[in-house]
Amino acid sequence: MGDRRRFPALLPLLASGGVLAFVGRAVLALPPTASGLAVEMRDGAKASGIKNVVTAVLLDFRGYDTLLEIAVLMLATVAVLSLREDPAALSRRIAGRAGPVLGALTRTLAPLMILVAGHLVWVGSSEPGGAFQGGAVLGAAGILMVLSGYAQPAWAGRRMVRWVLTVGLLAFIGVALYPMLGGGSLLQYPDESRKNLILFIEILLTLSIGASILSLFLASASATAGGERP
């Protein structure tokens, strides 16, 4: 850290100071109370049959955002998978390292985590929870299993993994496009099956999100260490 480094840091300092001033001013200029959309959303959620307001916003009122978000996650997964360079075997490197304690812990925790993931998706329609929370727990269970040296099962070949990765997005796109066949608009769920459709999307999304979290982890772990082909 010589003068050479200290001098150019002046510009970033000015930039971040400017950001601080402008955003701070903008925030302070807002009125201290605002009604927001809480009331409308709660009424709308009651009408849609999804009791958890955040889930209703995510998959019903702002379904388009969530659809694009899943697409972003898929794109990032594809990009990370194509950036990995040495798909040797992460599990081979790790397998020898998992001791009996980690193995026993994983045998206890992994089924429990899968159960928790399912529970989170199920309660997501009425209480805090949903596809993202469930998917994160599912992905974490997978990472734990990989780290404790569990081999990729034979049925989870490359083709299977690709299907699991994309099934959530494909199902979401399918459900989003379906109403257009009958002259409706994008993401206009039919009222009578709204709740079931949302639950259907959420379950498949959970699988895809879990799989993509695991793939992101495995693919970035592989770059220098060598990794299982996800």
Partner: peptide, 27 residues
Amino acid sequence: RSPESGPDPVPQAMVLTGIVVTVALTA
């Protein structure tokens, strides 16, 4: 910012979306 009607769920859903996008960005 609304004491009477409680927190607005729309920003919460947006943040939930944003967290996933941040995970993707970080990875």
